[in-house]
Amino acid sequence: MEIEEHLLYTKEHEWVNIDGDEAYVGISDYAQNSLGDITFIELPSVDDEVEQFEELASIESVKAASDIFSPMSGRILEVNEELEENPGLINKSPYEKGWVARISLSDLEEKNNLMTSEEYEKFLESAG
């Protein structure tokens, strides 16, 4: 299971890559692996406001469906429209080509509620 070092993680297996007051978000390798082949993602709309740990998008595989929660609060600047045509990108490249949305962050302090890659690794181990 790959865990990217420079990212922050949630307990629901989303990642966030903070760059100034903006950030890319997506789901972890662990998440895509447990979902299996992803067949569909319902993306949010640009300019939607999202709250930390609230629903951001929903994602489906053949036999599972789950929600993606936003790791941090903010406004949607951009969504990865390529995923609509090619949702399998999330399986192939969860940390890069499979990013879900770019967000303008409203509260940088929220990152204190997230896990570092080491913490996330331990979290995964403890969850078995």
């Binding site: 067949t39 569909f40 489906e60 595989s61 036999k63 599972a64 469906a65």
Partner: peptide, 13 residues
């Protein structure tokens, strides 16, 4: 197909 819309997977959603 598209079974993820259905109650046996989505339950309350």
């Amino acid at each position: 197909t598209l079974q993820a819309r259905e109650q046996h997977i989505r339950r309350d959603k």
